[in-house]
Design a protein around this nucleic acid. Structure first.
Lengths: 295, 295
DNA sequence: ATAAAATGATCAGTAAAACTTACCATAATA
DNA sequence: TATTATGGTAAGTTTTACTGATCATTTTAT
């Protein structure tokens, strides 16, 4: 029914018009002149009407050709636009990544990392949102973000986790607390004190130290509230080192030596789903930057 | 630099998405399945990114592929739109003709002709304007109209004239005028009477009757004014038969027998310029309708 | 007026592309 | 576990697009 107008002949026609003749167009397009003639003739046959006047020695458009010219230009321009945009995205010169990270990573690690990424990939837009690890997990799973930076939650065959760094668990208390002078702790050393649980406390689960959780009666999810509690000397808590905010001068972080606990922070992505070029750039960048640096 | 995205592979991709698989798309497109696979792979290589997920058995888009899909659809749709419109014009199902005609033809011949044309070519828009032959000539020459219907003015090698009909020159006078009873006239019979010249009077030039013009002191260009003058009995005039309005009951048309003068009415178009498909339809229609009918 | 140079068209042969048939590997289905 | 999907691969064929040589006209220059 509809003949297929290939783009090359359309370009030939436009080149003829722009350069003023078949020979000039041929040179411009690095083709032989008969190639141009034949392509134009084929195009005219498909359309059922000549585009160029046949008589004179010069290449002049017919009225039909004059009607066609602007549409051909638009169509070719449209093609080139789509082509250019697609390539820019494929080449990671443009695009967008949506990332989610646990708050500690988002606030402690990402600023420097994103600054470097923004410089390396100036055309890529980034959206970063934080959430606790469960929420990050869910966002990746639901496709709300392409990449998550989190501690591994539930190993899932629809998700893929690539470890980036290990983050030791420790105890945080005020500097005048009896524990504050220690260099390393055994979990039993915490038993006499009030333990404030927080969002990261479930990292203790499955270890001997889990016993502490059972005796804890205070749970604070918000990090700001938690540090306020600790600064008020109400109790102690456990935190991964990365989640410990060093700028609080009266708080101390003491590594938990026995059991040695750590969370594995890494990149989370859907397993059977490839990344967008922009996300792939981010993925590669993060892997390269954090490879070995904190392990 | 920019790779050329051929339209066929884009259609393949869309067909895969619409039909849900490579095999189904192949059947729908009347191609073999490997043809689809190879075209898609080639397209992916050109873009530098896969469009479909490789792992699973099903045809699922990558994020990059999801970005591409709507643009591919738009591009293909754009192509089809241009293609369809161009074909409609080429096939004379749509388009526009601008015509100019001398007033007599415009009012006496064109109504019936255009009615027929409108029926035969329902998609074609027509613009008809009238003007004296010199003006029609100029409009065709300047490209203001594609076709003129006029008596040949100056044979010009940039214009082409195709005769349609011969229009006899005669004398017009009131029914009580001495000449009104004659069947045919010799030019000298006019000498005693007041001759009113009009726009068609120069048709007498170059004939013996031209002598009459020298003695005429009244020139009326407007046909309504001219008939009013004739009805008032002020004088007589010469007119081609087609320009004589038979609905004026008190006016008579007497053919000029000696010299036998006629104007050749025909189609005027630019010589070295082909017609738009719509104008070509009009040209062919008019030639067919008037061929022989009035000659 | 004549020669020279330019225009686009034509034709045969060739290189490139797109496609088909046959077959393979893998994943979902019965 | 056999079956029937899926899509991928390879060799061979058809189709398309192109080149090089040549021609007919028209325009330009002498």
């Amino acid at each position: 029914m509809l003949p297929e107008l290939k783009l090359a002949p359309l370009r030939y026609v436009l080149a003829i018009l722009d350069s003023g003749g078949f020979h000039a167009a041929a040179k411009q397009l690095h083709r032989s002149q008969p190639a141009i003639s034949m392509a134009v003739r084929d195009l005219e046959e498909r359309l059922g009407q000549p585009l160029f006047e046949k008589g004179g020695g010069k290449a002049l458009l017919t009225p039909f050709g004059r009607w066609c010219e602007p549409r051909f230009r638009e169509l070719v321009a449209h093609h080139d636009r789509v082509c250019r945009d697609a390539l820019a995205i494929a080449r990671q010169q443009r695009g967008r990544v949506d990332i989610a990270a646990v708050p500690s990573v988002a606030s402690r690690l990402m600023p420097a990392l994103l600054a470097g990424f923004l410089e390396a990939y100036p055309g890529i837009d980034i959206s970063l949102q934080d959430g606790h690890s469960e929420r990050v997990n869910e966002m990746v799973l639901k496709g709300e973000v392409e990449l998550g930076i989190t501690s591994l939650w539930l190993p899932d065959d629809t998700l893929r986790f690539d470890a980036l760094l290990h983050d030791d668990i420790g105890v945080v208390c005020r500097d005048d607390h009896p524990l504050a002078q220690k260099d390393a702790l055994h979990w039993r050393a915490l038993k006499p004190y009030t333990l404030i649980r927080n969002g990261t406390s479930r990292l203790l689960e499955g270890s001997p130290a889990a016993e502490l959780l059972a005796h804890s009666t205070l749970y604070i999810s918000n990090m700001i509230s938690l540090t306020a509690m600790l600064e008020a000397g109400i109790g102690v808590t456990t935190l991964p080192r990365l989640a410990f905010q060093e700028e609080h001068q009266r708080l101390r972080f003491i590594p938990l030596a026995t059991p040695h606990l750590e969370r594995r922070i890494g990149l989370l992505r859907r397993a059977r789903q490839s990344l967008s070029p922009a996300a792939d750039a981010m993925y590669g960048y993060l892997m390269a930057q954090l490879e070995g640096s904190h392990r």
